[in-house]
Design a protein around this nucleic acid. Sequence first.
DNA 1: GTCACACTTGTGACCGTTCACAAGTGCTGC
DNA 2: GCAGCACTTGTGAACGGTCACAAGTGTGAC
Lengths: 346, 346
Amino acid sequence: MTTQLPKDRAPSIRDVARLAGVSYQTVSRVLNNHPSIRESTRARVTQVMEDIQYRPNRAARMLVTRHSRTIGVLSASSADYGPARSVVAIEDAARAAGYYVNIANLPASDQTSISEALEHLMEQAIEGLVVIAPQVRVFDVLERMSIDVPYVSFQPTGRFEHLVPADQVAGARMATRHLIDLGHREIIHLGGPQDWIEAEARMRGFLEEIDSAELNTNPPILGDWTAEFGYYAGQELLRSRDFTAVFAASDHMALGLIHAFRDAGLDIPHDVSVVGFDDIPDARHFWPPLTTIRQDFAEIGRSAVEVLLGKVRGEVIAEPGQILPELVVRGSTGRVPGVTATVTQA
Amino acid sequence: MTTQLPKDRAPSIRDVARLAGVSYQTVSRVLNNHPSIRESTRARVTQVMEDIQYRPNRAARMLVTRHSRTIGVLSASSADYGPARSVVAIEDAARAAGYYVNIANLPASDQTSISEALEHLMEQAIEGLVVIAPQVRVFDVLERMSIDVPYVSFQPTGRFEHLVPADQVAGARMATRHLIDLGHREIIHLGGPQDWIEAEARMRGFLEEIDSAELNTNPPILGDWTAEFGYYAGQELLRSRDFTAVFAASDHMALGLIHAFRDAGLDIPHDVSVVGFDDIPDARHFWPPLTTIRQDFAEIGRSAVEVLLGKVRGEVIAEPGQILPELVVRGSTGRVPGVTATVTQA
DNA sequence: GTCACACTTGTGACCGTTCACAAGTGCTGC
DNA sequence: GCAGCACTTGTGAACGGTCACAAGTGTGAC
């Protein structure tokens, strides 16, 4: 056979067709697993494809089908453990479902950054969007840019019916309840950044639980998730307030807090109890090992993809149940001296 | 004007042309910033594009130009701080350069996982590849699949001329030197997974420095980067060996080690000194604050993109200088009791 | 034998963009 | 007045797939 392959471009279905002695449409059918193809034909075509290392051209396919099989992820702080872990899970789940993932990070939370990132994703013709940086402003921009791809987020807001995988409020209530059960009465909340929906939810959970226990409500401090801020906040707290326990909205902030408290000569948990949130892998090796609320970030990511792809395909699926976080009691919390209380074990 | 837009498909360059009263080619020229376009024409076309929210179809463009403007990232452990931070930097840098990024995570390090991940990326028609999971096996698979896109990795290997951003060997030597300067003579290295090139480089640096100081060489322990393993290794070490210092190949492992040592009643750094590697943001808030080797993961990611895009564009650029890590001395290292030594300050 | 029908295969058009080439303008210089 | 040229614009074909439709097989029923 003198038929040979073009050397200046990748082989196409027409090349495969020629070598296999069939029409290009037959090759297309093999590619798409069309049912009515003679087994021998399929085998021959498949063989040729392997021989010449044929790879379908996604651009061509995309052009005609108008499906990119790509989902976008809009993410902030994705170097942090939680978001990073979720992103990995999203990629794995999407890949398993035959979808590609494109990520845009938010370098800042101003509207320009957000719309640039979204524009970048839209250029990719994404079919769905996971908002993993649930900043309130993102949704405004989404609406203003009249972006009409289906999307899911990690927290419910009044206006959006989109996904609610992890019940942040419940987690925050567990953490707070745990401290109350240990006899603490003056509890401070060190919250996350104000514009994060998750931060808001955790704060709300805290306030609800304090309320229902009819305790004194101390005004929360709003931080930025980092250990650095936790350290700073710890120093400030010691200067100005009376308290016996702190519920931090992230493990990192809890770590910084403990550092500040220890620098001031306080013993954890004897003098102050600290609860974190997330249960990052390091948390159990902190000193003292950190009591915290465990979130299954991987499961959250998987769930997000599942719901999103359902929407993309136009399926009517039941909203998934909320993923309940879990209280993990370790060494950073203890009873208030002189108070006998019932400790809730996880 | 009765010309109206099709409602079942997105507006195309021809729609824009019709509304602006020019040919589709003129619109294309506006899109590609062709120099010879009358300013008034350009303005008119641009206006129409905005009015009807025109977005170029990347698939069509890709099909004809044969450029995807997409780079791939093959990544392992990308929920860890270091890789995650680098990935974020890669995305930002690529986006700034007008490139899209596609990531494939390696769920495991067997050949099947690797080739599946690579296949996924190749389907996307990536123009370049960043290997952020520098496992030795990856390169074998790359060769065997006859993948001919340019790629960069984070570590040099004998066979590949590709990128060397961070000098892991030098970093490891600094860490080891620091311990030697403090008077330690029996130093153990807790290394990373054997098949990671980075782990190998850090171990090599350790051994070189021990050698040049003519100290007793203790066989390294090979772990998996995690705090969990560090904790386990710490327990094992205490059972079987004599040493006064440990150099761990990751901050996480260092954290676990310290936990194990403290559980055994040892004081850090009085009884044992520990050095980590990476300087994750939490490290300065560990107890004691961790002496470690700082790597600029963001810079490494940016540098990787810069070099890669240079290769993609066929430019002959000078190999970038190695990014030198930096010793950060904190509380987890101290002098060996009874020995007066010179402490190297960062 | 032939008709219906399922199974299998082939042909032309199209998706939205860029490329190669051609052609229309208007200005300058002689 | 017209050749020459730069500047600006337009026309046809292609990229590599899929879709809609048509047409060629072989089998069984009558």
